[in-house]
């Protein structure tokens, strides 16, 4: 009986999660009347705006990852090393993006950095790029911080730091050559989640008027029938590829940690 319920739960779960995806994929392949085809995908790939927005979002995602790593790794490291009593507060701050909507953050940016402010970032193209990277880094902060903090938990941060210091290393050397290489998997996990978030983000890019992938998906969805479904499948594929890469990197790292 128990087994029956287990199977029932599994089937309901699969139907709940997979059926919409199957439906969407099925619909995306029905552009040509009466037969399955990749016409919708071909149209999407042929659209120059797809290349433009996809390339822009990939670039922004990479910048966000680099910025996130520079922000989060030293912060999490320093909190673990010198300010462990601040950990609960830092964790709370990093969780705020989960409860504060992106629209609030971006309106805050626009208000704070408008053209009449002392730092008019919204007045230039590069300025809004910078704001967008900051915004994306904020949105990915809960995931990036947690991933790095978990990675730091697996190594003896204090002793490794002291060992490096006794060998003459300064802070930059310690973080760059001792700490960061030992939390690579954690950083990669955070980086892939960040990548997935940036590729699908709409609100910030739209309100800052940036040519990102999220607004393009919305625009296409409002004006076309089959292409949005194809685009959604592509976006879904990108997310899953990111998750797959996370798993792969985790496995690669597990090998050298196995004791002989």
């Amino acid at each position: 009986m128990k087994r029956l319920w287990a199977w029932a739960a599994l089937i309901i779960g699969l139907i709940y999660f997979i059926l919409p995806l199957v439906g969407m994929t099925n619909f995306s392949l029905k552009m040509r009347r009466g037969e399955y085809s990749f016409d919708a995908y071909a149209k999407v790939f042929a659209d120059s705006r797809f290349h433009e927005t996809f390339g822009y979002s990939v670039w922004m995602a990479l910048l966000t990852i680099v910025f996130g790593v520079f922000l989060v790794v030293p912060t999490a490291y320093w909190v673990r090393l010198k300010l462990p009593y601040l950990r609960p507060y830092i964790e709370f701050v990093t969780l705020l993006p989960l409860v504060i909507p992106a629209i609030v953050i971006v309106f805050g940016y626009i208000r704070l950095y408008n053209t009449s402010s002392w730092l008019p970032l919204t007045g230039s193209y590069v300025g809004t790029d910078v704001l967008l990277v900051f915004g994306y880094a904020t949105l990915s902060l809960p995931y990036m911080y947690r991933a790095v903090d978990t990675g730091l938990r697996t190594i003896d941060v204090t002793t490794l730091t002291e060992a490096a210091q006794s060998l003459g290393a300064g802070w930059a050397t310690i973080i760059g050559r001792v700490i960061l290489p030992n939390v690579t998997v954690a950083v990669m996990s955070g980086a892939f989640v960040t990548f997935a978030i940036v590729m699908g983000e709409f609100t910030m890019a739209a309100l800052l008027n940036k040519p990102a992938f999220g607004p393009y998906m919305q625009l296409l969805g409002a004006n076309r029938a089959y292409e949005p479904a194809a685009l959604a499948v592509i976006a879904f594929g990108i997310t899953w590829a990111c998750l797959g890469l996370m798993q792969l990197v985790s496995r690669l790292q597990k090998t050298p940690q196995r004791p002989v």
């Binding site: 002291e162 060992a163 030992n182």
Partner: peptide, 14 residues
Amino acid sequence: NIGMVFQAYALFPN
């Protein structure tokens, strides 16, 4: 310029 050896070895795992 002081060398130190720790109880937990503290070799750099990477």
